[in-house]
Amino acid sequence: MFEARLAQSAILKKVLEAVKDLLTEATFECSDSGIQVQAMDNAHVSLVSLNLRSDGFDKYRCDRNLSMGMNIGTMTKILRCASSEDTVTLRAVDSPDNIIFIFESQNKEKLAEYEMKLINMDLEHLGIPETMYSCVVKMPSQEFARICRDLSQFGEAITIACSKEGIKFSAAGDYGNANVKLAQTADSDKEEEAVLIDMQEPVKLTFACRYLNSFVKATPLCAQVKLSMSSDVPLVCEYQIGEIGHIRYYLAPKIDD
């Protein structure tokens, strides 16, 4: 028996919106410690890693480890049927063929059940090594989303250069070029608005806008985003999910031919 309940479906709705652009299918691995998803996008350029800890749920029970292959499009459609304030419960038997989503309104007068067929998937797990990053930047997630959107108008890729002075995003294309510099905030009274840079060595890396613009769909999950970068390794773009977990996006850089 697997059962996981969240008092408000809003978190799960936002999580689905944050992955649906990148993933068509994904395996949800459920264990005593929580729910984990690790999946590459179709082009195998980026990797999504989602972790929801069992102690972050209002109720969590997982008698046996389960790997449930889910169609993300269908799951997104089902979550859209829930109101943000509805309680959501995920339920499956051991060795399940399907999973049930149960939405209950706050006043308990409406109860909706949606059953979704599970899919068989080959489980290919990538081992992500522990990495000490040269630059770790924390910045407002809305600002990051805005910069990605704005610079995407100029080119297909954004170059991120990080130094002690700050972080610079730039894009160049046929019509011109653009760059946005953010300095580290002097006083971080408002934690949510702070730009914090932890730099060991300066880095300069280039990434495809397409993927960055998919990652920023996670913006509603968290006021701050953490960008971890080292030369010649994938960018990690991380959003905390309340007190329950996090979503990390890994993106392979573009390199000189």
């Binding site: 082009a43 195998h44 350029v45 990797l47 797990h125 990538l126 495809a208 890994y250 392979a252 000189d256």
Partner: peptide, 14 residues
């Protein structure tokens, strides 16, 4: 010009 790397080339596949 730059070419796009794949993510699996950085991480071990299990």
């Amino acid at each position: 010009s730059k070419s796009q790397m794949g993510i699996a080339s950085y991480f071990k596949v299990h």
